[in-house]
Design a protein around this nucleic acid. Structure first.
Lengths: 132, 132
DNA sequence: CATTTAAAGACTTATTGTATCCATAATATC
DNA sequence: GATATTATGGATACAATAAGTCTTTAAATG
């Protein structure tokens, strides 16, 4: 069980967009190049963030992507959910008498992680100077 | 990113072993049947728990598996690590200036989850009566 | 020795991740 | 309005991982 590379691309792209102008969009070409990934593939990933309402895309010359939400509203969890989906990390498909105690524990654990990801906002990192 | 089914099998098997006799081993046949999985496959999974030192296997007639450690020592994290490996869930392979801030956040989140899994012991569930 | 039972290795098969390529749609600029 | 620019969507390819089977070997019991 690992987070996908797509999630890594998404997080890094979002961090770049948070640092970029909120008006002038950044082209996928530029975003892709700085991460060493093909523009078409990154575009596919970013489309998911668009559908999640976190960024918006502008077609045509000088187009690209820019944030659609307030910088301070975007959490790590938002981005991860948009890419990895929101399904539970652990699913016990056995038919027990009642609820699965193991699954309950796993769910609690997952919630601890999610809680941290929900409380950490992209903007928290944007300040610290490291880019990409 | 999901936990594998193998982890689910391992956790349920361990719960059964905790409830079983600490002396007389339980055959993989029986363990597999109650989970609807093939004995050979489950055996493959349990071998990893053996190598991790959590259970021991006894070959030959009347053989099977039984706990090798004190019941109260076995945590969820032990089992999960034995099956899924101990690698970090998130790995940023870009070459940043210094450390990756995104990875740092992800690691913190993962640690929250692991902390809960480390603090929850199998024996905590064994009491409550639900089986498998 | 015959039977039972786990271990190990080789081998499928299915699913998911990681892309690439191309055609299409939308927009800005001239 | 024509053209260049940029994102979107679909089809496809390839690799890695998950999930599982089969067969043989090794160990223990009676």
């Amino acid at each position: 069980m690992r987070f996908t590379k797509a999630t890594n691309y998404a997080l890094h792209t979002m961090l770049m967009l948070v640092d970029a102008s909120p008006v002038k969009p950044v082209g996928v070409q530029q975003l892709a190049e700085s991460q060493g990934v093909s523009p078409t593939y990154l575009s596919k990933i970013l489309t998911r963030l668009v559908k999640a309402g976190m960024i918006e895309s502008i077609s045509g010359a000088n187009g690209g992507y820019r944030l659609s939400r307030k910088r301070d509203d975007i959490t790590f969890l938002d981005i991860i959910h948009a890419i990895e989906g929101t399904a539970s990390l652990f699913e016990c498909n056995f038919v027990h008498g009642d609820e699965c105690l193991i699954q309950a524990v796993m769910k609690e654990a997952e919630e601890k992680m999610e809680s941290h990801l929900k409380n950490t906002k992209l903007a928290d990192l944007a300040q610290r100077e490291t880019k990409v």
